[in-house]
Structure formats: C-alpha cells, structure tokens
Nucleic acid binder design. Structure first.
Lengths: 335, 335
DNA sequence: CCATGCCGTCGAAGCGCTTCGACAGAAGGG
DNA sequence: CCCTTCTGTCGAAGCGCTTCGACGGCATGG
C-alpha cells in the first residue's frame, strides 16, 4: 500500500507525545508508568501498527528472544515424533514470546558455536542426544544456556530431559506379565540404533529385561530392521526360537504395522494368540489393526517441558539437572 | 574458559591494525581491499575467533540473513514429508549463509506480520498452501519476499512451487494402463483433505482421472481414512463395487501399509492379482511388503528449489511465478 | 513550612555493525 | 610535469532500541 517506511519507536513517541524511553518502558514494563500515559502509548502503538525491530532490540538488550532447536539428522530417526516435538517447541516458545531457529546437526559443532557467538540465539535446545554425544562437552564449554533431550553418559553441568524409557519398557513387561503371559519378548529398533549408543533404545531394553527378571519370566530381545520382509523373518525367528512367547513388546514405530501384518500371515491372532504392546505415538497405535495397547512417546510434553526449563535458565533460575517424564500406558485392543 | 567478553569487530580491527570499516569490507567483499591487508584481517578474525553480532549486522544492513519457514499444522498432514522438507530447507539456506526461523501456521496471519514487520526475517517460505488460503492475499499485501509451496487458486503476484501432482496422478494411471490393466482405481487421502481444498490432493485426482479417460479405461476414486479397519473396508468396498479392478493407485502415505495388509487379508496377491502404485516417499515404498512401485514426493528437491527461488527474490532478481517439479516413477515389485 | 522521598518522565549514551564520503598516494594521459 | 583517475583505507554517521542517571513535582512527616 503505502511506501511503508517502517514505523520506529520514535514515531510512536512522537505520536503519543512522550519520550522514546517512555515508550520503551511501557512496552517492557521495567519501570512504572502512569495509567494514562501507558494507555496513550498503547493506543499509538496500535494506531501506527508498531512492531519493534528485532535486531535493534537484540543489540541493545543483549537478548535476541530466539532459541535454537537443534535436530539430529541420522538414519533410523523417526520423523513424525521429531516433527511433533518441533511443533510443540515452537508453540511453547511463542508463549514465552520467543521464536525458534531451526538447525540441523549436520553443521556440526561449528554451527552451535556460530549461533551462540553471534548472539543470534539466547539458548539451545538439542534433540536426540546420544550416550557419548560430542555435543555434550561442547555445550558445557560454550557456556550458552541449553537443554538436552536425551541423556548423555556424562551429564555433569548439563540440563537433560527425556521420557523415562526404562520405566516404559518395564511398564510394558509388567502389563503383559500381569495379564498372565509367562514368556515375553521385545522387538526393538534396527541394530544400528543400539550400536550407536542411542540412550533411549538401550534404556527401554534394560527396563524391559529387568522387569521380566524381577518376575522370573523369560524375556527374549531382538533388534529389528524396518522393511516388511525383515520384520516378517524377525517375528518368525522369534516365535520359532521361543515358541511359548505370547506377549510381544514392539519398540519400533516404523515396524509396528508390519509386525501386525506378519503375525496375521503366521496365523497368530492378536490378542487371542499373541498380545502386543507398542511404544509409539498414539495416532500410530490407534490406526493399527487392531488398535494397539501402547505407551506413547509424549513428544509434546517433552517439548513443552524442555522449553520451560530453558526459559527458566534464561531467567537465571536454577533447574534440576535431570528431568524424567513418566510414561503412560493406554489400553486398547491388542493386549 | 575466559570471562569471555564477546569479540567485536573493533577488537579485530585493533588486532589487525586497520580501521573497523576495513574489517567490514574484507568480510563483506563490498570494496576492494589489498591482498596483504585482507590476509592480515582474516588472520586476526581467526585468531580471535570473531563472529559478527547478528543483531548489529541486521540493524545496520537491514538484512537479517534469516528466512522464516511457515509450517502448516493440520489434521491429516503427513509429518515425515514435512520434516524432510524442513531439513532440506535448512541445509540449503545455510549454503546461502542464511538461517531458518521455524513458525507454525497456528499463530495465524499476525505471526507473519510480526516477523516481517520486526525485520526478524528477510523472507518467508510458506508450506502447504491451500487452494483458497488466506495467507495468499496476506503475503501479497505484506510485500515481504516469499515463496509458497503449493498452489493457491489465485497466484497472481506470488511465487509458487510444487510437485506436479496432476502429472504424478497421470503417471500412475499411465503406468498401470500401459501394463495392461483395464480397470483401475485411486485410493486417496481422508475426505477432509479434499473438502478443505488442499490443492495437491485434488490435482492428483484430476490427473489420474483424466489420464484414465484419455485411454478409455474406467477409473474409480475413493477417499480413504487412515485406520486399518477403515482402509480394509475401503478396499473391500472398492473391489466389491468394481470387481474388475486390477490396478490400484494409493495416494495416502499413512494408509499405504494397511492397503497391502487388506489385500493380503482379502486373498489378493500383489502384484499377481492386483498391481499397486503408491505416491509416497521412497523409504515407505521400500520397506513395504512387497516393495512398492511408487512416485515419490521429492520433498528435498522442493525444499532446495524453494530456497533458491527465495534467495533470488532477496537479491532482487525476478523469478518465474510458478515452478512445477516433475514426478519420477520408480518401478519396484508391486506393479 | 522545609527537608525527604517517591513517582513518572525525559535525555543521552551506547550496543556492534554497515556504508558513505573523504582522502592520501600511485598510476596514467596529455 | 601537472592534472586526472583509480585504489585502498579511514573516520564518522547512523540503524532502532534499552537503560542509566537526572530531575521536576507531588505527597509525606517532622
């Protein structure tokens, strides 16, 4: 429309008949301003459709009001959960009046250094941290406020949050055993995921195994690739080697549909012949046939909490080093 | 380590024994600087590990070197593709020395207005634009450089890019008909997606129907919800109503696995009894059983091209109003 | 009734960078 | 040999905002 010279705080001040600093204080609330002046300023802001310049604000206040979200970029990642997570981070950050800069891990440590050093962001949210993640030491050294999703082996001086996967594995085992199953098994992620030392996969497995042992129930465990054929033979092998298995836990979102297909092909009915519990998002569980009893990965919760932790750190509050989110089992038809 | 007062351009200038402006010109290349001076400055930059302050740069140059990626946030979205897309946008943007601000559509028009007006970003990438998307007019009015992924009905003055879904639909039909099928069908997205006027779904359907008509082959079409049961009855209905159907196109990523399961349950072998072609990402097609002949949604290409278009616009170049990416059919075992 | 405080507002000094105009000195032309 | 034209560099003026210190004016208390 108009030639649109952008509106500055000086324009607002002039329009409202006050000093620039007064406008600033009205907007930030950092000093008391009389109700009448405040209102006049606010009206001018609205009238002129004023939006503070982000760069100038960042420069003067040393706060960019932007946080970085660092995504992993690896094989075997499960994109939908990542996405849900990202969305919840953005939504929550906005509630704190912050924006989110999206980064991929493939720029490596330099990327983190760059955004931190350039004051592009005030803090970092690092996803999918592995057991021996090089970014752990880096973050410690960087001194930039950060929150990690996932647990590195050495979490000293870091703030970490994740679903309690050990508990999730145990919950699945307990549920099956409680339902009377006397031999159970876990079908996991592709083996590369375990080898990489991805914390959550190993922790689920440990929790599962431990719970089974506690009840004295034999528990087989098998990694599982994600193609239909691979899943079929994995299931066949498993049931061959452990014919008494009647309870199955699946911790592999991409394979979960195939597992049901494989069981169908092998003539095993779910849940009559084999009970299945999955660890996956609700929508996957719901649209499976039959709908799966499942423990969900509460991506949204994790995202929200992670942002809250980071905001607390930005405000100089001290926060717990580790936060574990409790898993929740939803009973559907498969177990 | 150190108390870490951040390094400024003045520090670099002092260290190199030149003026601040000289450092700036070395870094931006906007004026000729002698080789020796340039080298000295560059050395100092490295020695001090200097990173320009993003806010100051943005303020002075009126270029933030950040673009916004606006994601949709709707039911029936398919997250993995979105994610792939986002990753490719970030990667490409980095090649142009830009960062990416992630926004969700749920902040609405105000969100776009806000980031644009505050100069937080230099341009906008808007994903998953619908036929009658309110953001079309908004962008036009905003005057901020932008690129839309998807085609609104009125694309005057906008820059749009997408996969040529009509062509993709036609390609599937052509492939099946070329293989000798005399009655074919399309299993599509959930009906809500069509009703919303999501361009790509409708265009696929149109391309498919048209191609079939051109060959004089009857072609049924059916939207499809994504739960296993719904898919089963959809497939059953379809095959019941059109018993001669031997070629099936599936344009629904979440349902594609279930379709194969349903066919198996109905006793139809793939590809002996029914040939199946899917429109979905390669990894989904590959890990299906049997691996699916498919047309992939080239999320990465779209992302890369979209960024390139946006960068061209930021540089003041003029770009084509519409860009259509050609689909590619990959033959696997299912058709 | 004057000293004391507080409240609300203002002016000005930066924040770190880009960019414009100026200006030495070298190079080239008449 | 002087005047012009480049080249390479410098200094300074902002960019739009936050924040600090200052300062009138009003109420309070002695």
């Amino acid at each position: 429309m108009s030639p649109a010279r952008t509106v500055t705080i000086a324009d607002v001040a002039r329009h409202a008949g006050v000093a620039v600093s007064t406008v600033s204080y009205v907007l930030s609330g950092k000093r008391a301003i009389s109700a009448t002046t405040r209102q006049r300023v606010l009206d001018s802001v609205r009238a002129l459709d004023y939006h503070p310049n982000a760069g100038a604000r960042a420069l003067a206040s040393k706060r960019a009001k932007v946080i970085a979200l660092v995504l992993p970029l690896r094989a075997g990642m499960n994109l939908p959960v990542l996405m849900q997570f990202a969305v919840s981070v953005v939504t929550t950050a906005r509630q704190y009046d912050h924006d989110v800069l999206l980064m991929t891990a493939d720029e490596g440590p330099d990327g983190l250094r760059r955004v931190a050093a350039s004051s592009l962001v005030d803090g970092l949210l690092v996803m999918d941290v592995e057991l021996h993640d090089p970014r752990g030491p880096l973050l410690r050294q960087l001194g930039e406020p950060s929150v990690l999703i996932g647990f590195p082996a050495d979490r000293d001086g870091l703030t970490c949050i994740d679903l309690d996967f050990a508990r999730a594995g145990a919950l699945c085992a307990d549920h099956l055993i409680g339902a009377g199953h006397r031999e159970i098994a876990l079908l996991g992620a592709p083996s590369v995921v375990y080898e990489r030392g991805t914390g959550y996969a190993g922790r689920t497995l440990a929790g599962f195994t431990e719970a089974a042992a506690r009840h004295g129930v034999p528990a087989a465990v098998r990694p599982c690739e994600e193609s239909f054929d691979a899943v079929c033979s994995a299931v066949r092998d498993l049931l061959g080697a452990h014919p008494g298995t009647t309870g199955l836990v699946v911790h592999n979102e991409a394979a979960v549909g195939h597992v049901l297909g494989a069981l169908r092909m092998l003539g095993r009915r779910v849940p009559q012949d084999v009970s299945v519990v999955a660890i996956c998002p609700d929508d996957v569980a719901e649209r499976a046939g039959p709908p799966l009893t499942s423990v969900l990965v509460p991506a949204e919760d994790v995202g929200r909490q992670a942002v809250k932790l980071l905001m607390a750190k930005l405000d100089g509050e001290s926060v717990p080093q580790s936060t574990l989110l409790q898993p929740r089992l939803t009973i559907r038809e498969s177990a």
